[in-house]
Design a protein around this nucleic acid. Structure first.
Lengths: 186, 186
DNA sequence: ATGAGCATGTAACTGGTTACATGATTTA
DNA sequence: TAAATCATGTAACCAGTTACATGCTCAT
């Protein structure tokens, strides 16, 4: 693939749990070449656009396999949302409510996206050997999104109990599209 | 607080979703001082150890409040676990099973830790205005851990169906402490 | 012709970790 | 007396993003 291809592929497949920028991809491609893990194909320059396509070497493949077997590093825990909620008592509770509601919407959107991708996958690639693995990564996102949605509900509840002044007002005033049930099929 | 204090406090409170290193803390403290957001107290040097204690200014406090109100940035999505699982079909399925089992253990440990912290909090700080906010951040971790545990179960199931050769062998051979039920009270 | 998309890349910067250097005090 | 912990900090490095520069091609 070319650097551009890699970016496109990543965005359309692993995009919901991994992103790469060109500033990372192009220099890395050079590095892989220098280390003999990838080789450039003959540049298809004749008439067409310049495209620097790389191909993985056998050395590169074994390197990938070893990397796949290595224990993955844990995700660095850094949630700005939780950080702001932790100190939320220092400002009005509405501020925390706002954060959680925004987060809730993001999760709801994510969940729907996952469900759509899953349908597409099932329709088009259910016989690919990668299929169960791809489904797993999607399920991961779905389980997480559902859990977060539930958490949003109990947290909003907790905050409104803690700050009963606006709870009636808010319910009457707002277009309550966050009042939807969280219960869904896994 | 001093830089050391901040590190200690962070580890013991927001530690499960935010970490800071000295390499970050000490230079930042200087920066805050230069910007008038924090001022150093008189150094308690007399007889005792050198301690550079800082205090927040009123300007600093309003800055904090504004920051608390600002929408938190979304967490950068980068899961090495999912990345390795996504390409898992390129190596033996046992490799993916290993990753998931390791992850499962981590989540189980995390869940227990959260539950312990929650008990401690309830015992000692249930009347602090911050209490509901701190509970919320803990609940976040609990909901997530439970969801991940469920995901581990269905994923291990999926992989063993997909690769039925070892499923019987494995079940008989291993000390199956991962066979525990995931069902727990939220 | 104008803008979207194809395609390459670099430079500056930001955020953050790790390793190191130093030395006092407390505890086993 | 050895190790843990208190306490300060810096330098080097690593990972990663953002903004920029360039220019072609294709569809409207």
């Amino acid at each position: 693939m070319s650097g551009y291809d890699i970016k496109q592929f990543a965005a359309g497949s692993i995009g919901h749990f991994w992103k790469e920028s060109y500033g990372q991809i192009y220099p890395t491609l050079r590095l892989l070449q220098k280390e003999g893990l990838a080789i450039p194909e003959e540049e298809k320059n004749n008439g067409e656009r310049l495209r620097r396509v790389f191909r993985i070497t056998t050395k590169g493949k074994t390197e990938v396999e070893n990397w796949l077997k290595d224990q993955p590093r844990p995700e660095p825990a850094r949630s700005e949302l939780l950080l702001k909620l932790f100190f939320g008592y220092q400002v009005s509770p509405q501020e925390s409510v706002r954060h959680i509601e925004a987060f809730r919407q993001t999760m709801q959107a994510q969940l729907q996206e996952y469900q759509q991708i899953e349908k597409q996958l099932e329709k088009n690639l259910s016989h690919h050997p990668g299929f169960p693995y791809w489904i797993m990564t999607l399920q991961f996102g779905k389980y997480r999104a559902l859990a977060y949605l539930q958490w949003c509900d109990v947290s909003l509840d907790l905050l409104s109990k803690n700050n009963p002044k606006d709870s009636k007002l808010e319910n009457a005033t707002k277009n309550s599209n966050q009042q939807q049930s969280t219960k869904q099929e896994g």
